[in-house]
């Protein structure tokens, strides 16, 4: 078993400092995030409250008619526990207005659409509340591209973007996220019965070890297999990692001029700190 443990006290403090400083350096006092009822948004919400105070954290709960009842309940549980201002907006009507016209049973297409509708609402609410959007994606899903491009990936910062999913579970225990949320199976909840691990074909406990050996220990695929992981799983995961690189990079800009964003206009992000 690869050791993915961290110093949880320090990790918590470090991420809270990050949220506090990056919010300020981006010129904001408030943050907003989508609260799905899952563990990632529960962790980010709690860290944000610790960093900024509950009065500066807003939540959006955005259920669709096929979302599980449990997701909504757990989203409300996060809201109640943290005492943050949260709005629940059902997206069924607006999503179905489009879905009824496109005649598709492509789950991925519909799932991406729902993620992007949620993103649109969260960014609209960010404008209303003068808040920066906190991303809730974790390292495992970002590295595997198990996210919707310009959907749930869209944000102003990624507080847990460098934590593997299994590390998010440990941090959740450490900071006292409700056990009910920690214990349920990870799911994007884009259609009934969907779970991350079924879709990825592998439990996070295995995924994270393979990613860790590849990324942090810089092992080759062969070395990871000889470490004791199934060749098929290693190959598939690494293929997935590289085939989704476009989601983690700036889109190519056709360079014509002497100075071009994305190439040689190299100012830092936190320019206005």
């Amino acid at each position: 078993m690869v050791d993915l443990s961290l110093n949880w006290d320090m990790t918590e403090k470090f991420i809270e400092n990050f949220i506090e400083e990056e919010t300020k350096s981006n010129g904001f006092k408030h943050v907003i995030l989508g609260i799905s009822g899952g563990i990632d948004s529960a962790v980010v919400a709690k860290l944000a409250v610790k960093a900024l105070g509950k009065e500066n954290v807003f939540g959006s709960i955005l259920p669709y008619k096929l979302s599980s009842k449990e997701s909504l309940e757990d989203g409300l549980l996060v809201q109640k526990e943290l005492g943050i201002y949260t709005e629940t907006i059902e997206i069924t009507e607006m999503a179905d207005a489009y879905i009824s016209k496109i005649n598709t049973d492509d789950k991925v297409r519909i799932g991406n659409l729902l993620a992007r509708i949620r993103m649109s609402i969260i960014f609209d609410k960010a404008r209303e509340f003068d808040a920066i959007v906190l991303g809730t994606s974790n390292k495992s899903e970002i590295m595997l591209g198990y996210t919707t491009w310009y959907g749930d990936m869209a944000c102003g910062m990624y507080p847990i973007g460098d934590l593997y999913k299994t590390q998010v579970f440990k941090l959740a225990e450490h900071i006292g996220v409700p056990k009910k949320i920690i214990d349920k199976k990870p799911s994007a909840d884009l259609w009934p019965g969907q779970t991350d691990e079924d879709e990825l074909g592998c439990p996070y406990s295995i995924i994270d070890q393979i990613l860790y050996l590849f990324l942090e220990e810089r092992m080759t695929a062969e070395e990871i297999v000889s470490y004791g992981f199934e060749k098929d799983k290693v190959t598939k995961l690494l293929k997935r990692l590289f085939s989704t690189q476009f989601k983690r990079t700036f889109p190519p800009v056709c360079k014509i001029s002497q100075r071009t964003f994305g190439h040689d206009f190299l100012y830092p992000h936190d320019l206005f700190k």
């Binding site: 470090f14 990050f18 400083e21 990056e22 990624y158 830092p268 992000h269 936190d270 700190k273």
Partner: peptide
Amino acid sequence: VGFEDGLG
């Protein structure tokens, strides 16, 4: 101390 572009 402090953060710049995510580096702490």
